[in-house]
């Protein structure tokens, strides 16, 4: 199980590197969406690993709310490019 967690963290680092080196804002947004999903999945894995219901609830809420934040930000950035 520890190995699995290390592997997921390695997968989390790839989009972070991408967000740091790319200069296009939409590529950064893609990396952000990828990281948001992956982080909440890692929270879920940890909650199952520890058999902790509370962390699991938080993981599910972050999973559904983080995506809403992304959509809001994408709409605002789109308006920004129009002007």
């Amino acid at each position: 199980m520890n190995l699995i967690l290390i592997a997921t963290i390695a997968a989390l680092v790839i989009p972070m590197y991408e967000a740091a080196q790319d200069n296009d804002i939409w590529q950064k947004m893609l990396a952000f969406s990828s990281i948001a999903t992956k982080a909440s999945i890692v929270i879920l894995i940890v909650s199952v690993l520890r058999d902790d219901w509370m962390i699991g609830v938080v993981g599910v809420i972050i999973l559904s709310v983080g995506n809403a934040a992304l959509m809001l930000l994408a709409q605002i950035l789109k308006r920004l490019n129009e002007l």
Partner: peptide, 25 residues
């Protein structure tokens, strides 16, 4: 500033992960 905002979002996701893993739900 806009790129910094997007990366601030990434920081928010990562720090939420850290807090949850350390037990502060």
């Amino acid at each position: 500033p806009y790129h910094a905002l997007v990366i601030r979002g990434i920081l928010g996701a990562v720090s939420a992960l850290v807090y949850a893993v350390l037990g502060a739900a």
